[in-house]
Design a protein around this nucleic acid. Structure first.
Lengths: 203, 203
DNA sequence: GATGTTATGGTTCGATCGCACCACAAACCG
DNA sequence: CGGTTTGTGGTGCGATCGAACCATAACATC
């Protein structure tokens, strides 16, 4: 059944063109004509596979999200078996940083979409209702770290998780702006992680 | 010399229209016609006072920056005489949060401009070369706090300042998205400030 | 092998864009 | 008083936008 495969490949081909244009010039440059030219297809095909422009932008974002999740899982799997909570949280947080070309361009695309989430009522509602999944995940991992002696018990897991995620997101912006190198960002974050995950070697 | 005043008032009137449109629909909605209608002037006036659209966007941003700086100084002055380093840093950081309608709309406008700084080569260079003024300011204040016994000496001022500013910027995003209340953000930040500024009452 | 569905290209339309251009009033300056 | 600068409105032009529309290969189904 190569039909479905072809269909998805076409959508991906078009979505990638959307991403490239969005990273270069923001969403304003993502016009139907430009996307068609960038993807090497006719404008008619965009309508066929995505419908209206709004749906095209939305569809391209969904595909990007699926990609991101898969890449994240792959990288986390590379941590080896039974990694410490410190390493896991570090891996999760670093998905938010533009540490390689793939993550950099991905977060550039996200930045282009960000204003939409602030202004478009429908998207704003989605963002508002979406639980801060990453933050809750990190908070849970810190609690696990406390239960297994990798994190001091006087650490406020929820507050630290919130600030860690927020801090990494802030670092993301400055690295994207090239105000700060990726290495500097990693160092600053590791400094905070070292504070939370006190490695007493006595787990 | 009412001439200059009139001129600046006109520019401000137009700039405010730009801000309102940008907060409502992002920079894409800031078209010459829309700005003219929103400001209640003819489209010709925009050309007269700002020139091209690009210069209009740039000019409106500059005026917003001047505004922001003035408001920040006013609020900091309200801290009273001889405030502690803790209070000063807190005040500086809170300028980044949408704690009232004025700051909320201001940061919405900044968000709309953000992508420009990532994609426009000229703006990207500006952002890249701009020192992270806020971060250096906070770092300096923390060092002063160490010298006056308000901050433990084992605190890494540069690393903490970097993460504090980044964390507040991250909080800013989630508050703008209404994923988190301003009060929650304040609480999380205060939790971090309490850690850095250990109030031993022995200054 | 007729028929319908899927996948693709090309074209066109009305709206809107940024901006250049024209006209004119008011104010200032000689 | 006459002319030049300054401030304002209106209008038009070429380009581009999103999207609807038309045509038609390729392929599947019976």
């Amino acid at each position: 059944m190569p039909r479905q495969v072809d269909h998805d490949q076409r959508r991906r081909q078009i979505a990638e063109a959307v991403w490239r244009l969005a990273t270069r010039g923001g969403l304003e440059d993502v016009t139907l004509r430009q996307v068609a030219a960038e993807a090497g297809v006719s404008a008619r095909l965009l309508q066929y596979y995505f419908g209206t422009r709004e749906q095209l932008l939305l569809g391209a974002l969904e595909i990007l999200n699926d990609d991101a999740e898969q890449r994240a899982r792959e990288r986390l799997a590379k941590l080896g078996e039974a990694p410490g909570m410190h390493a896991i949280v570090r891996g999760v947080l670093f998905e938010l940083l533009p540490l390689d070309e793939e993550r950099r361009s991905r977060h550039l695309v996200y930045a282009a979409y960000f204003v939409r989430f602030l202004t478009d009522p429908a998207l704003a509602k989605v963002a508002r209702d979406a639980p801060r999944a990453l933050e809750n995940l990190v908070a849970g991992l810190i609690v696990q770290g406390q239960e297994s002696g990798q994190v001091p018990l006087n650490i406020n897991a929820a507050a630290e998780a919130a600030f860690l995620v927020a801090g990494v997101e802030g670092m993301q912006s400055s690295v994207l702006l090239r105000q700060r190198s990726a290495e500097d960002a990693v160092a600053v974050i590791d400094h905070q992680l070292a504070r939370v995950f006190t490695t007493t070697n006595s787990a």
